[in-house]
């Protein structure tokens, strides 16, 4: 076994250690790198920025706790933009864990912007059945959600007074870590009830959203922690996403280095035995 073969067969726990260290060092040092903004993220920002004061925005918290490190900084940046502009938000979720996530975010925003539940925002909560919920909200919002998350009758909540369908919203922010119901909000919601949608999704899902962007079915894509960092930059503050970008760069360099090393070792370990018989 030559040195290259030995490198190829290194115990994977050393690789784990390298990844852990390369992620931890930038966090301990805590510095930030300049962020550049892509047109996809600007698409969402501009759409929200163009809404008139008092406009109604629907926000769907369709991500699991596993995606929170990516999605929470993004959700916070976008909600700060929305509430900062004096827009009103109605939250909803297509997945059970979205309730806890939405509730925590609303509580944080309530403190930060001195909001009032039922007047500045409301949280409808969760209902199962993906496309059945999207279509239910489109057909009869208060029938589908007779009570909001806080057990109040939706017919008596002030913010929902003139809201009876998806049609009555001016914009929708879809925060998601999966396609849920076959891109339900786009295929069923936007198409049947004409609601404009911005997509905020995990990095894994971002590649799959580009066809919808090109077809103008979404106004923009905020993808993963990188997208969140861009949104933080547009909002003019440095939050956990922008700080996380340094660690992301550092782990990337490590992984790219490992891929290159793996390939070099692979090529060189193969070359050696060919030479041996002649030598």
């Amino acid at each position: 076994m030559n040195i290259w073969e030995r490198i190829l067969q290194i115990d994977r726990r050393y690789i784990f250690l390298l990844i852990g260290i390369s992620g931890a060092i930038p966090i301990i040092m805590s510095f930030s790198l300049p962020t550049f903004v892509t047109p996809e993220v600007r698409g969402v920002y501009n759409a929200i920025d163009a809404l008139p004061e008092g406009a109604m925005v629907l926000v769907s918290f369709d991500y699991e706790p596993s995606a929170m490190p990516e999605m929470d900084p993004m959700a916070k940046a976008i909600l700060r933009h929305i509430f900062g502009r004096g827009l009103k938000v109605v939250g909803v979720t297509l997945i059970p864990y979205g309730t806890g996530i939405g509730e925590e975010l609303f509580v944080a925003m309530e403190r930060e912007f001195n909001l009032k539940q039922g007047v500045d925002y409301d949280f409808l909560g969760y209902k199962p059945g993906y496309q059945a919920v999207v279509l239910g909200l489109g057909q009869d919002l208060k029938g589908s959600f007779p009570k909001n998350f806080y057990e109040q009758d939706t017919r008596t909540v002030p913010i929902l007074k003139d809201i009876n369908s998806l049609r009555d919203f001016d914009y929708m922010m879809w925060l998601h870590d999966d396609a849920y119901g076959g891109y339900g909000w786009i295929i069923y919601g936007r198409q049947n009830y004409g609601i404009d949608i911005g997509s905020g999704c995990t990095a894994i899902l971002a590649t799959g959203m580009y066809p919808f962007l090109q077809a103008e079915q979404v106004t923009g894509i905020v993808g993963g922690l990188k997208g969140a960092a861009e949104y933080e930059k547009l909002m003019g503050y440095t939050g956990s996403a922008r700080l996380g970008m340094v660690a992301q760069s550092s782990i990337h360099v490590m992984i790219i280095g490992l891929i290159l090393l793996g390939n070099i070792a692979f090529i060189l370990s193969k070359r050696k035995p060919k030479k041996e018989p002649s030598g």
Binding site: E70, T202, G224, L225, G244, A247, Q248, I251
Partner: peptide, 10 residues
């Protein structure tokens, strides 16, 4: 890869 890293960074 970026997505998984983000969770680790979190």
């Amino acid at each position: 890869v970026m997505g998984r890293e983000s969770i680790l960074i979190g």
